[in-house]
């Protein structure tokens, strides 16, 4: 692959890897058993996608476990801590809608990622379905769940502009992608009786330099935990 294609594979692969790890942190802690299972299954799908993408670039284990924080190219959105369940669902909603729209377009191009995208987009459809149902249940639930779901959607809003920074090498109409995403989010939040967040998504007060290797404070701690075993016992296997 070309250097540009490698960089694109890292961006997509790191998104999937990092979100997979975050979702895996819910194992044993989710509010109900079914959600423990659901979040772990979504994490597994993402991990599978990450493995394919990172393997296009090099050794998947080296890339996952031996890179420093600034070498990761994931969005800052996916590295955000799980927060309460509503924060995890808001992160899932924003990211799964983005990933589904993006992969649906990649699937019909003839680039390096078409095969994976065509397969992954079907899995992501279930992630989106899961996130949408929970957004509606929590938003249109009790006063407490409504308030917490709204707070989560608002808190993560400033991370959503970064998703539409063009990734070099991908033949995507990013403006159209953003418009479709905005339309989809608006529809879900409306059904969930939630208010569209109003804060900035770009500029000085917004987040977003993950694609350039700049990450938020919690990401370093997440990596330390994720990489600890491999770094402590190089070459170990089950």
């Amino acid at each position: 692959m070309t250097a540009t294609a490698n960089a694109a594979a890292l961006a997509l692969g790191d998104d999937a890897l990092v979100l997979s790890h975050r979702l895996g942190e819910w194992a044993g802690h989710a509010p109900v058993l079914e959600e423990d299972v659901a979040l772990a299954n979504i994490a597994l799908d993402l991990l599978g996608q990450a493995r394919v993408l990172l393997s296009l670039v090099g050794d998947e284990d080296e890339l996952a476990y031996l890179r420093e924080e600034r070498a990761f190219r994931n969005l800052q959105l996916v590295e955000q801590p799980n927060g309460d369940f509503a924060h995890t669902i808001a992160r899932q909603l924003y990211f799964s809608l983005y990933q589904r729209l993006l992969y649906a377009q990649l699937a019909v191009t003839d680039g390096e990622f078409a095969g994976l995208a065509a397969k992954a987009v079907k899995e992501v459809a279930y992630h989106q379905d899961h996130a949408e149902h929970w957004t509606e249940r929590l938003g249109d639930g009790t006063a407490e769940s409504h308030e917490r779901m709204q707070r989560a959607c608002d808190a993560l809003w400033r991370f959503t502009g970064e998703m539409f920074q063009p990734i070099e090498g991908l033949d995507i109409d990013w403006q159209a992608l953003e418009a479709s995403w905005m339309e989809a989010v608006t529809a879900v939040l409306e059904r969930a009786t939630l208010t569209m967040p109003a804060g900035p998504r770009a500029g000085g007060w917004a987040a977003g330099a993950g694609r350039q290797g700049l990450h938020t404070e919690s990401f370093g701690r997440m990596l330390a935990e994720m990489q600890h075993l491999h770094r402590s016992h190089p070459g170990a296997s089950w």
Partner: peptide, 13 residues
């Protein structure tokens, strides 16, 4: 439907 995800990735409960 109880859950869209079950004992393995390919099943719903």
């Amino acid at each position: 439907l109880l859950s869209r995800f079950s004992s393995t990735a390919c099943k719903a409960l």
